[in-house]
Write a protein that binds this DNA or RNA. Structure first.
Length: 501
RNA sequence: GGCGGCGUAGCUCAGUUGGUCAGAGCGCACGGCUCAUAAUCGUGUGGUCGUCGGUUCGAGUCCGACCGCCGCUACCA
């Protein structure tokens, strides 16, 4: 059994979850769910990033302590993921004691290895913002927020000697072509590394809301350095090295394209500096756009995933995100697209197939599911499509995995049209046809369950499967013929009621 | 400016190393069916594969130029 450790970024608690963060989390969840089916020992982590100046200020403005503010927002994430059926094994928060311990242990190791040195950070500083800006951000030498002149300031802090890892990173990338996916993002990260790496400051003195530097308590770690280490914390870094060793480096990070540098450059270098293997794989996804634009508070185009799930059902939202966004590319969300996909794929194809099969089984087979035929016309297509779908899941291509499952659904619908069992007298011929159709539903339920766990479990129950869907293991469970005949088939209400709008 | 990517049917997109590669789904049109959630099945519509050259027996598929769009070019998470 191999181990598979799936992570999402930890979400910053300055904002409630929106459809963009939900997209990331749903994709990670589906990937993790597939790996469980594939028989891997899976650990799936998500959580929240709670330190830093922004939280410090926002909480003060709201009349709360930073911790109160973090508690409040973190609970919204927990609830949202619950509503969306996210199967995370742990939820890490960077303000937890275990994380403070891990950060201090991790960076002490980096320090002991000689990769941290004291220096001074210099840059353009806005007194009103109490923050630094790059020259690119400055507008005519003025603060882009306040419009006031920026001052050249310097601050004593600690630097991570990132520059020493330039060649090591290049070597690692070249030795592991699949390290970052898709390829274009890998090239982007590698190009950045090749252009030359500078040391980076990793502590802040002006900010107090963070993890103190163990050897110099007047400083706290810069929030990004603290945040990345969550991936190590959750599997026992610094507290349970044996457990850590079981899961590291079998980690698969799913991230958005906006945080490539932190994950694809800083983080592997940090791991090397701490004496660890770099992460096994980083999968980069694009942005979920609305009307072609990025979701943002100011554009008022943010979509609440909890509301959307309340409207369409969590499974349908998950399906749409996984099916209509090519992992790695930007996707565009629209209400019309959501409805269109729902009706076409879920109500008309999938749900209706389940419905018509159940009805004919009821009329022609006394409501008892018959056995599929080993030599069914559908067997060959089912075997190859199921196999291809499984491969797509394993290859981080949910959109392909689902498309292939739907091809199987279409095959089954077409076969029913061709044979018209509803016109036949009860008997072996009808039994065979419907046994085949039920077998297709069984296979589809497995293949689609990472995307729609609740609906697939319900279908699984309705067709009379006795074992639990969650206990199915690919590839054995995807072999043709495992439908357990003789059980009552239940029609039930529509799995996905068709929508008019 | 530098590096990288993209531009294929109305829409969303597939198209390994050049030779059934001109495709899928949706949409639309026509026909069949009526078991099913007015669902389904079949047939068809539809593209000079961004433009112009080049290499080749043969190019969405390689090379060059050009047009249009986009990403990255570091310490905001």
């Amino acid at each position: 059994m191999s181990r598979y450790y799936q992570t999402t970024p930890i979400y910053y608690v300055n904002d409630a979850p929106h459809l963009g963060t939900a997209y990331t989390t749903v994709v990670a969840d589906a990937l993790a769910r597939w790996r469980r089916i594939a028989g891997d020992d899976v650990f799936f982590l998500t959580g929240t990033d709670e330190h830093g100046q922004k939280i410090d200020r926002a909480s003060a403005a709201a009349g709360l302590s930073p911790q109160e503010m973090a508690d409040r927002t973190a609970s919204r994430f927990v609830r949202a993921w619950s509503e969306l059926g996210i199967s995370n094994d742990d939820f890490i928060r960077t303000t937890e004691p275990r994380h403070h311990s891990a950060v201090q242990a991790f960076l002490s190791a980096v320090n002991d290895n000689g990769y941290i040195e004291k220096g001074s950070y210099e840059g353009l500083y806005c007194v009103s913002c109490e923050d630094y800006f790059t020259e690119g951000e400055a507008v005519g030498g003025n603060c882009p927020i306040h419009g006031k002149p920026l001052e050249w300031m310097s601050e004593e802090n600690y630097f991570f000697k990132l520059s020493l890892f330039e060649q090591k990173l290049i070597d690692y990338y070249e030795a592991n072509p699949e390290f970052v996916r898709p390829l274009t993002k890998r090239n982007e990260a590698l190009g950045f590394i090749r252009s030359g790496l500078r040391d980076i400051s990793i502590t802040r003195k002006a900010v107090q809301w963070g993890v103190p530097v163990p050897w110099d308590p007047g400083h706290v770690f810069y929030v990004w350095y603290d945040a990345l280490i969550n991936y190590a914390t959750a599997i026992g870094y610094g507290t349970d090295q044996e457990r850590f060793g079981q899961w590291w480096p079998a980690v698969h990070h799913l991230i958005g394209k906006d945080i490539i540098r932190f994950h694809c450059v800083w983080w592997p270098a940090m791991c090397m500096a701490a004496g660890l293997e770099p992460p096994h794989r980083i999968v980069v996804h694009g942005w979920l756009l609305v009307g072609g634009e990025k979701m943002s508070k100011t554009k008022l185009n943010q979509i609440d995933p909890v509301e959307l799930a309340a409207d369409f059902g969590a499974d349908a939202v998950r399906y749409h995100l996984l099916r209509d966004v090519t992992l790695g590319s930007d996707g565009d969300f629209s209400y019309e697209g959501m409805v269109g996909r729902y009706n076409a794929d879920l109500a008309n194809n999938f749900g209706n197939l389940a419905s018509r099969v159940a009805t004919v089984v009821d009329r022609k087979c006394g409501g008892v599911g018959p056995a599929p035929r080993p030599d069914s016309k559908l067997a060959q297509a089912a075997t190859s499509l199921a196999s291809a779908s499984a491969s797509a899941w394993a290859d981080f291509a949910p959109q392909d995995a689902l498309e292939l499952a739907w091809r199987l659904i279409r095959e089954a619908n077409a076969e029913l049209e061709a044979t018209e069992p509803w016109k036949m007298e009860p008997g072996a011929a009808v039994d065979g046809i419907l046994g085949d159709a039920l077998e297709v539903l069984r296979l589809v339920a497995i293949l689609v369950s990472p995307a729609m766990p609740t609906a697939c479990a319900e279908l699984w129950r309705r067709i009379g499967m006795r074992e639990r869907l969650s206990d199915q293991r690919a590839p054995e469970a995807l072999e043709w013929g495992a439908y357990t005949a003789g059980a009552a088939v239940e029609k039930g209400s529509a799995l996905f009621p068709r929508r008019s709008s």
